[in-house]
Structure formats: structure tokens, C-alpha cells
Write a protein that binds this DNA or RNA. Structure first.
Lengths: 181, 181
DNA sequence: TGTTAATATATGATTAATCAAATATAAGAT
DNA sequence: ATCTTATATTTGATTAATCATATATTAACA
């Protein structure tokens, strides 16, 4: 499961709590790669401990509730390195809009265009989110190795949105010219 | 759930059995929009009958096992029309390769490139599959309304693969030039 | 003093999807 | 005669993800 390995990767960057993972990773950049909710994160942490891939230390805090800080064990590090080299299957995409459009011939043009316009808004918002993430450009020679990797990932996310946006615009044009019924 | 509505749409095109849905829809074009396995299809058919959106007639066959043929009811047709006009959320994409790349700074360049090369092969295969689907082009004026919709959907699938392929090529170039460690 | 917000973790229930396998009929091939 | 293939449906088990909610501590605010 990739979520487990994503968490392993994040904990290898630095030790964190479940709360940290949620608020500073899975609510931020990682949300674009592998969204995960809080319940799943805490449960996956439990599984990783069971597996022996991470270990937990309770940090007592005076001013706030105590934290369970997790860090990667030697065996966890080995597992991550192993997994990082395994070829993974293509992701499965299930896009409700495509199903709608596939059967949209029975809708009036205006209704179809409304669907596409709404997606266009949502996609533009997502593109803006991705473009707001600050990372050195691919041609920036001062970028560290991990920044290059992260920028590369971000570039796909951005390109993906741009492709979708272009396609939506084409779709709107095409439908506008269609004879109804 | 979109699977239910996809099935509703397919049954509105013509009455079909679970087997038909699997072999001539979910193994073919629809596989690129909304993959579904056989167990899920049959179970969803049961749910749709319970809802009263489709009805079932058993067709006795002499030469082959009997078929349960499903067709859309009036209430099913209404439900489909309703659903087709509801704005749907953006699909959630979880791509394991992006997680790998995000943490790939600890891998040697050759290992990263191997990951990307393998995805490139898989993506090219998928692109070829999409391009093999026969549908009139968007500028073809003899195309029927439903063919236009289906071509539009296919165009996104194709563009999506092309975007991914371009990105993979860029990625391979960038990683090749990276200093290791 | 009581309320809300932020920090922090845990659990129950449900849905959607996947995997595996069982069952049955008949045609066609070896 | 047996094996395979295609047709056709059903069920059990499990995983991954989501949703809702519960619990606890402290700070800040009104």
C-alpha cells in the first residue's frame, strides 16, 4: 500500500506525529499526490509500528496534549528503499464527469456546457493551488536533489490540470456548435 | 455512486445482461473511464433493481445458460437524467509513481530512470489502446451526437496519456543530468 | 465563568473496490 | 471420453477509503 510508504518517506525526512503528518503534509503538497484523512493516517501508523518499520516515543508537553512522535527504524528504512525501486501499476482514474459526458447526448447543449464550465472553475482553482507551491524550477542549478524530485512531481500535477483545462475549453467549443437532438 | 449511473446509461442504450456489461462495455471503452470488475457489476445490478431503476427479465436459452436481461425503468431514466446534470467532484488521483519520485532523492539516478522508463512503456501501451478505439473525429460532420460525446471523452483519455508521456521523457532527461548524492 | 479554537489521538460504521472461487450449461477440440 | 473455452451468475473475504464522532488538554477570548 502506497500510503504506508508515503508515511514512511515523510517520517524519514523527520520524525513526526500523526497530527503533524495530517496538518503539514497531507493537507499541503502531499494532498495533490496521495490524499489521506486523519483516521487513515493514525491507523496506518499503528500498522507500521506492528510491522516494526517505525517506532513511537511519547513526548510529554506541559502546555498541550502529549504527542506520539514516530520515527523510522532500520528495517523501515530498508523497506522504503526496497519499495521505492518496485515498478508500480498505473493509477486507476475514475472520473464521474467522463461518465456524464459519455451519456450526455440526451442532455441539451446548455446543460452539458454548464457541467464543463463548473469543472473548468474547479480545475483552475486546483491549478492555482499547485502553482502556489514554492519550489525551485527544473533549470535552477542551486536546487537540491530532493527539491528537483519534488518539482518534477509538481510539474506533472500542473501539466495535468493544464491538459484538463484545455480539453474542457475545446469541449465547450465543440458542444456550442452541436445541433441539438 | 457513478458506477450505478454508468450502468444505467449503458442499459439505456440497450438492454443487457451483467455478462454483456462486463465483456462489451467494462472490458472495452468504458474500461478507460470507469473500470469495474464482474462482482461489482452484478452487485450493482441487484442494487439498481432494489431501487426500482432497472428491471430484470430471464431469457431462457437452449444452447447456452439463461440470461438475466436488465432494462431501465421510467424511474431509472428519470434518475439518470437527474444525475447527468449534477456537478460532480473532481476525481481523486492516487499515483504511486509520484510518491516514489517524491522520495526518490535517496535512489541512484539509474534506479529512478528505470522506474520512469517502465511507466513510459505502460503509458505508451495505454495510449495505443485509446488510439485504437474507432470513433469519428471531432471535425467529422457526419458524426452523431453520441459519437461526438464519446470522441470528446476519448480525446481527454488520449491527451492525458500524451501529457504523461511527455512528462516522463522530461523527467528522464532531468534525472540523467543530475549529480548523484 | 463559560465558550471557542487549536492541538492531539482514537474508534465505529459504512462504502467502494478487489480478489478469489464456486457453480452451471453447452460447444468444440483432442 | 475428457479437457478446454465461452457463456453466465453468485458469494465470501478482505482492503482501502471515507464519514462521523468521541475524548482530552490547554490557550485565548469575551
Amino acid at each position: 500500500m502506497s500510503l504506508a510508504h508515503a508515511i514512511l518517506g515523510l517520517l524519514q525526512q523527520e520524525e513526526r506525529t500523526g497530527y503533524d503528518l495530517k496538518t503539514s503534509c497531507f493537507n499541503q503538497t502531499v494532498a495533490h499526490l496521495w490524499p489521506a484523512d486523519q483516521a487513515q493516517i493514525y491507523r496506518t501508523l499503528d500498522k507500521l509500528v506492528e510491522q516494526g518499520w517505525i517506532s513511537c516515543t511519547v513526548k510529554i508537553q506541559r502546555d498541550r496534549p502529549n504527542r506520539k512522535v514516530y520515527s523510522v527504524t532500520a528495517s523501515g528504512k530498508a523497506e522504503l528503499t526496497r519499495w521505492l525501486q518496485c515498478s508500480q501499476p498505473l493509477p486507476i482514474v475514475r472520473d464521474p464527469l467522463l461518465i456524464q459526458l459519455y451519456f450526455a447526448d440526451q442532455l441539451p447543449n446548455a446543460a452539458i456546457i454548464q457541467l464543463l464550465e463548473q469543472q473548468l472553475i474547479a480545475r483552475r482553482e486546483k491549478l492555482a493551488e499547485c502553482e502556489n507551491i514554492e519550489l525551485p524550477m527544473l533549470n535552477d542549478k542551486s536546487a537540491s536533489r530532493d527539491q528537483v524530485m519534488q518539482r518534477l512531481v509538481l510539474e506533472l500535477a500542473i501539466q495535468r490540470e493544464k491538459t484538463y483545462i484545455d480539453w474542457l475549453k475545446t469541449g465547450i467549443d465543440i458542444i456550442s456548435c452541436q445541433k441539438e437532438e
